[in-house]
Design a protein around this nucleic acid. Sequence first.
DNA 1: TTTGTTGCAAAACGTTTGCAGCCTC
DNA 2: GAGGCTGCAAACGTTTTGCAACAAA
Lengths: 158, 158
Amino acid sequence: MVKDDFSYESVKDIFTAFLKKKKMRKTPERYAILEKIYQTEMHFDAETLCNVMQNEYRVSLATVYNTIELLLDCSLIVKHPFGGQTAKFEKTFGKQTHHHLICSKCGAVKEFTDKKIRTMLKTKTFATFETTHYSLYIYGICNKCKPSNKRKDKMLLV
Amino acid sequence: MVKDDFSYESVKDIFTAFLKKKKMRKTPERYAILEKIYQTEMHFDAETLCNVMQNEYRVSLATVYNTIELLLDCSLIVKHPFGGQTAKFEKTFGKQTHHHLICSKCGAVKEFTDKKIRTMLKTKTFATFETTHYSLYIYGICNKCKPSNKRKDKMLLV
DNA sequence: TTTGTTGCAAAACGTTTGCAGCCTC
DNA sequence: GAGGCTGCAAACGTTTTGCAACAAA
């Protein structure tokens, strides 16, 4: 697991500028959370992130939620609706714009990229709405859950 | 408020076929919920729907959740992540395919349609994934929340 | 020194579950 | 008549809140 310092240094500056503009304090907790988030490529939820952090920097769950809110505000992370009751988050910088395939049966989430879709959505503008970002979710049945791939499970074929 | 019987009759058949296939019971509660859902054009949540229903047909919140789950299964409704903690739903039949603009400041949701986007997404297929539907959410700042439209609110312009 | 931020614990909230009685099949 | 479905209420898990202590500015 290589620490992605390049990525963290640039987003740290963005976060610092954001906090300054909002006249909010630059606490070590906030930076520790941001750093941890930018060390992973995966989707994460608040509680998991909080647990993972305990090894290096002690932060409370309330502070994690607080900081996540700030990071959403300055678009350093995005929130995803998959994951049932639990909100999932994902860093935005250092990742190529991508979309998500969500299996309605098993809940598996897979990322994909499509240049044509990306270009089309990036150039779409509105007269009365200032776009910051967008999310595209494609729902369906993944390969593992396809009935044809489950020959042993005859009951599903009725 | 005109009752959209046309719409309801066709979706009722779809629901009946679904219940039959799943060997589930055709209870009056389930049909009453489906009918109520197809009488509105708006996004709704489980609790609001349950409250609105009390006037005509007494159903419990548990049954509303149960039925919503079934309607999601047979794609008669879709689930949306906007609305914070509360899941929002929307009927699928009798509505043109559309997308959503979500204001990050005030939470307002506006629908829009775009033929090019619709065509592109409809024709997109995957080798190992069988698409059933998709959702596109565009986030940003709506006209009402734009700083330039709030001249009186000087503090925001710092 | 001031006051925003933290950790903790309790509360709030939407959603799910267990169960006795009901009603579809 | 059997067993799936309902309403009710309690339970659950995530997120938010209140407050005293702390620390950034």
